Amino acid sequence: MHRAVFLDRDGVINKALMVDGKPYPPRNLDELEIMPGVDQAILQLRDLGYFCIVVTNQPDVARGKTSLEAVESINQFLIERLAIHEIISCYHDDHENCDCRKPKPGSFIMAALKYNIDLSKSFMVGDRWRDIAAGQNAGCRTFFIDYQYNEKQPTNPTYRASSLPDAVKIILNECL
Rank of each mutant, 00 (worst) to 15 (best):
S89R: 04
A70D: 03
H95M: 11
D93E: 14
S73Q: 08
S89V: 04
I87E: 11
E72D: 13
R101C: 02
G64S: 10
E72G: 00
K102H: 13
A83I: 07
L82D: 00
S73C: 04
F77P: 01
A83Q: 10
E69T: 11
D99C: 02
T66R: 13
H95K: 15
S89G: 13
N75Q: 07
N97C: 12
C100I: 01
S67W: 01
L68N: 05
I84H: 09
D94R: 13
S73Y: 07
G64H: 03
I74R: 03
H85E: 10
Y91I: 03
G64L: 11
E86F: 07
E69L: 08
H92F: 10
L82R: 12
K65I: 02
R101N: 14
T66D: 00
E72R: 07
L78M: 05
R81N: 13
S73M: 05
H85K: 15
Q76L: 05
L68S: 11
L78P: 01
E69S: 09
K102A: 12
N97E: 14
D99W: 02
N75T: 07
T66W: 01
L82P: 02
N75I: 00
D99V: 00
E80Q: 08
F77N: 08
E72C: 02
E69V: 01
H85D: 09
L68Y: 12
S89M: 09
Y91G: 00
D99H: 03
L78W: 00
K102Q: 04
N97I: 13
R101G: 03
F77E: 10
K65C: 06
R63D: 14
G64I: 12
H85M: 03
I87F: 11
E96L: 13
L68Q: 09
S67C: 05
R81V: 07
A70T: 03
S67H: 07
I84V: 12
R81I: 04
A62Q: 02
E80C: 04
A83R: 14
H95T: 14
H85P: 09
D99F: 10
Y91E: 00
F77R: 11
F77V: 00
C100P: 10
E86V: 03
E86Y: 12
S73A: 10
I88W: 08
R81G: 07
N97Q: 14
A83T: 04
E96I: 06
N97G: 09
I79Q: 03
C90M: 06
I79F: 05
C100E: 00
N97K: 11
N75K: 03
K102N: 14
R101F: 07
G64F: 10
A62I: 05
E86G: 13
Y91V: 06
K102M: 13
Y91M: 08
L68E: 12
H92S: 09
F77Q: 05
